[in-house]
Design a protein around this nucleic acid. Sequence first.
DNA 1: TATTTGTATGCAAAAATTTGCATATAAAGT
DNA 2: ACTTTATATGCAAATTTTTGCATACAAATA
Lengths: 134, 134
Amino acid sequence: MDKIIEKFKALSDETRLRIVNLFIKSGKNLCVCELMDAMHLPQYAISKALGVLKSAGFFVTEKEGTWIYYKLNRDKSEIKTLINFLKSYLDSDVFLQDEERLQKRIALRLNDKCVVGIIPEKELLKLIKDKVNN
Amino acid sequence: MDKIIEKFKALSDETRLRIVNLFIKSGKNLCVCELMDAMHLPQYAISKALGVLKSAGFFVTEKEGTWIYYKLNRDKSEIKTLINFLKSYLDSDVFLQDEERLQKRIALRLNDKCVVGIIPEKELLKLIKDKVNN
DNA sequence: TATTTGTATGCAAAAATTTGCATATAAAGT
DNA sequence: ACTTTATATGCAAATTTTTGCATACAAATA
């Protein structure tokens, strides 16, 4: 029983739902710094939220050098069912904004890998503008 | 989004899951006093737990005199989906014990209505024993 | 080996939830 | 009208969760 409770608890939080939403909608594996920019939240907030979701079984991680890619855990049927349930209810405005910002951030990848890291927003906006103008 | 969060929160609690379990397994509408005996919990604990579940949309109530029957809300598809999901994961020991005690309590109904109310455990056990011996 | 960089985590303050008790309410029966 | 009975609720203490900061760690680079 504790296991189910842990899963429901993990999903009882706006930040964590926003994270799950981004993985569902983008279909990508994402790293902390990409989520930071998509959600406009500090690094520790993203890391902690991911930690909770990972202990509850929603994510697995893949390390690539200093980067850590989080990935929805599709190996467990309870998780798949819950994720599937969520799909129908992730339609509020906050989610959309996150998705739009993530798209711009993802556009800066090279070979579908994150290469930007944690940078001040000003520089990020500049990179995005350059990307559009070339 | 707040609505989904409220639903997940409602299910993130042992007492509340135990209650939902009894409704699922028994298939009956139940009143507070019956849940008290099935779960060996004080009246206020049951009432409060039901209150949380009701605000989250899991239950509706039907008043019959002083008795109030709670009933799983099958009119909302999200609720139905969540209830259905839960069915596969409500298999821990606590649930079974609740179910056994509920069965004995339900056996004391007349015309499928609760007539016993809140009584001390000793008297309850006596009633149950009498029931078996006649 | 020193530094940088992406991510995690320990800890204390703040906020939210739960628990227990006492009491309130509302319908029935006397 | 008064009492009894089933259920709800207000409130304070206890517990849990969240938030923010500072710092730690581990891999890469210089």
